[in-house]
Design a protein around this nucleic acid. Structure first.
Lengths: 249, 249
DNA sequence: GCTAAAGAGCGTAGCTCATACGCAATTAAG
DNA sequence: CTTAATTGCGTATGAGCTACGCTCTTTAGC
């Protein structure tokens, strides 16, 4: 782990703080361009289409040229996970924490939804890239005027991030699954459940199936359904935060 | 999509409802054995070690023999995602919903934690396998005595599942990241944040860093920390459910 | 029993991928 | 001008998924 500017090499790379080389051939590629090209491929054709060869072709270079700038494909994925984020919107000062956190959470979800592959990138550690930290900051900022301790603020924001990531993964993967095989949703699914769910073994589920909760009349996957459920979960979570605040005075 | 017993082939496979073949050579493998072997490999060496060749070797067969029983590696992963689950513990009848849901959620997390690769298996659609449905049922069962409508119960349980999956992913991947590179946590991390976080640009984060929230004196990754944060999030969510129930009478 | 159909096991081969290695071309420092 | 550093890239290796087709086994139907 070489250090640069007193920072671990990986973090320096995320922040674009590599000291430029003094001699040698001028690079025809930059880490930023490579990352951007990879993001474009992933956005257009999914993370599965991102191979070193494909990214290199996009840039008019050879596959192996990329390895002069990026340690491995895995390192490239980490870079993508920071560079793909927009800057967070400015926190409206003085608003109440709940409105602020609600807006923030929906902004995070919206920012991630632009890159459906995001939830498939393996986490490596705590947030370290400039965009990730900026978003972290703006989430914490929404809690600035509350009497929570700093560690509690981190807990609240981490809980929201967990919720958003879980939600992102579910909504994205279900949507993809629906594209591949619409029969796994809709009528075929509810018919199968009626056949398989034994009311003696699974009484609660049988009641839900019987009530027709899974009978969507149309055979399409409804993203707004999933988002409504997310808004519901979010409200519940924030109600909990409100109760916690009330309890502390 | 061939049907069998009036069920889509994929679901029939999950439930072990394939009609046995009348003629032809006796199979020396079953889908169940293949799935079990794959799970053992994944548990012992991670999902990355699960290749068709590796699973076949484990069973003393050739790679291609597996394809007589399983359509593709992807199909095998789906089977693993159901077979890896234990049966849910019986719901304690008559308890209050909150205790029931708390216990249920922790059981789900514990069941999934036995198989750290679980959160990397792509979702394909709504739950359809016998174990997944049994768990779904037992979560819904905890809400049986509440006045919620069936659809609302589904919403509450789905929210919990989302939370658990998000939590699982975070805790597992952070633990793996810590093994690979402990420097990305602990002192090196907090030192890097102090260098990078400009208090003008990220005031809220700077306050948190300044308060020493990220200064763990030991250089180890603390799983109980992460779990404490999860318990916190869960309490918040359930507070929200309680508030919702109170609001409806 | 005999024949033919239906399956099972598996060897081969094609394709995609990540990436180690080493050489040639290029640039700046001394 | 020499030399060290650094980039671009061709080649090769090994792993992985899976289509294809051959062969062997078992049973249904006569």
């Amino acid at each position: 782990m070489t250090e640069e500017n007193g920072l671990p090499a990986e973090i320096a790379l995320l922040w674009g703080l590599r000291e430029p080389p003094r001699r040698g051939r001028k690079p025809s590629l930059t880490v930023g361009e490579i990352t951007r090209a990879a993001i474009e491929v992933a956005d257009a054709e999914g993370l599965g289409a991102v191979s070193m060869a494909r990214v290199a072709k996009e840039l008019g270079n050879s596959t192996m040229a990329l390895y002069r700038h990026v340690d491995s494909k895995d390192a490239l994925l980490k870079l993508m996970a920071d560079a793909a984020l927009d800057d967070p919107p400015p926190t409206p000062a003085g608003g109440d924490w709940r409105a602020g956190l609600t807006a923030w959470t929906h902004s995070v979800l919206a920012a991630l939804r632009k890159h459906p592959w995001y939830s498939r990138i393996p986490l490596h550690g705590p947030p370290a890239g400039p965009r990730n930290l900026a978003w972290f900051d703006s989430g914490l900022g929404a809690l600035a005027d509350t009497p929570l301790e700093e560690g509690e603020k981190v807990g609240v924001v981490m809980g929201l991030i967990t919720l958003v990531h879980g939600q992102l993964r579910f909504s994205v993967e279900l949507a993809e699954g629906f594209q591949d095989n619409p029969d796994a949703f809709g009528r075929t699914y509810s018919r199968a459940l009626r056949l398989l769910v034994d009311p003696r073994r699974m009484p609660a589920l049988a009641r839900v199936v019987g009530a027709g909760v899974f009978d969507h009349e149309d055979e399409r996957y409804d993203e707004s359904d999933v988002d409504a459920e997310f808004a519901f979960s979010l409200e519940l979570y924030l109600d909990g935060v409100a109760a916690y605040l009330a309890r502390r005075g």
